[in-house]
């Protein structure tokens, strides 16, 4: 039976139009800054803005801190659960899914009341403390993605055998974790890391409510006050997101290639 391909092509055409038109329009809009001609003026203005550099740098730093601390928290936990505490797996999985259930705005609203300057742990009282709280908040938001990536990576290797082999060769826990387990889940950790970066870099709600000079609040400020620069920033943000997803694909493909080559 020959089926008509008109429907599928139509769906693809409408989808492509819907997804591409806003990107084209944003790019076109971002070129309009100089009257009567297309120019990259908006990009020049944005990239030269010291507040852009400062906020982008700040968000990059926080993103890296989030990734490092997240990896250090999640890899040992997921490893330990796979190795010793399998009966805790459902509970841990449930907890890691909660940030998808509880909206970020609710979580940060809770932070504002539990970590304010009159609380037992007044993290919000100092800028450094708030930076730390922001990082913990981003770790929470990234938890579902990071944990799932690492857990999938750990399940695809034989954790028990690797651990026993390392132990019988006299390795301590630190050696096992950092020299045996980490290298084996490197690809999974990296894909979780890039996804985390994509989420954190332009995040608005937490950064704005904790009043930190991050890229998200800067975007909002520019969006509220300028005409053409927001479009240029949207294109920049889109390129950053695209780069993160592209890197995930590239690292994922590398792994498949080496596995096939074995």
């Amino acid at each position: 039976m020959k089926r008509s391909r008109l429907g599928p092509w139509l769906a693809m055409a409408i989808g492509t139009a819907y997804f591409l038109i806003p990107l084209i329009a944003t790019f076109e809009f971002s070129l309009r800054m100089k009257r009567g001609e297309y120019s990259l003026e908006a990009y020049r203005v944005v990239l030269a803005d010291p507040r852009f550099q400062a906020s982008f740098g700040y968000s990059t730093l926080i993103a890296i801190a989030t990734i490092l601390m997240g990896v250090l928290l999640i890899v040992p936990t997921a490893y330990w659960i796979e190795l010793k505490l399998r009966n805790l797996r459902p509970l841990v999985e449930f907890i890691t899914l909660l940030p998808l259930v509880i909206p970020a705005i609710v979580i940060v609203f809770g932070y504002l009341h539990t970590y304010n300057s009159s609380s037992w742990i007044p993290l919000i009282a100092t800028p450094r403390g708030t930076d730390l709280l922001l990082t913990f908040g981003y770790m929470t938001l990234a938890l579902p993605y990071m944990y799932r990536a690492v857990d999938t990576g750990l399940r695809s290797i034989d954790v028990r055998t690797l651990t026993e082999a390392a132990e019988s060769l006299g390795a301590g826990w630190g050696t096992i974790l950092f020299k045996v387990i980490f290298p084996n889940v490197r690809v999974a950790v990296l894909s979780g890391a890039f996804l985390t970066f994509a989420i954190v870099i332009g995040e608005f709600t937490l950064a704005s409510l904790l009043d930190r000079p991050a890229f998200g609040p800067y975007l909002q400020l520019v969006g509220a006050n300028r005409a053409y620069e927001p479009s240029a920033l949207a294109i920049v943000a889109f390129v950053v997101t695209w780069a993160c997803m592209g890197l995930i694909q590239i690292f994922g493909r590398d792994r498949r290639a080496t596995m096939a080559g074995r």
Partner: peptide, 28 residues
């Protein structure tokens, strides 16, 4: 791949993109 990118392309940049598309002086 595109869906992976677009599902993470939310927030303010997305709002800016739609303002540039369907806003009063948007391209469309």
């Amino acid at each position: 791949t595109f869906c992976g990118v677009a599902s993470n392309f939310a927030g303010l940049p997305l709002a800016f993109a739609f303002l540039a598309t369907l806003g009063r002086t948007g391209l469309v």
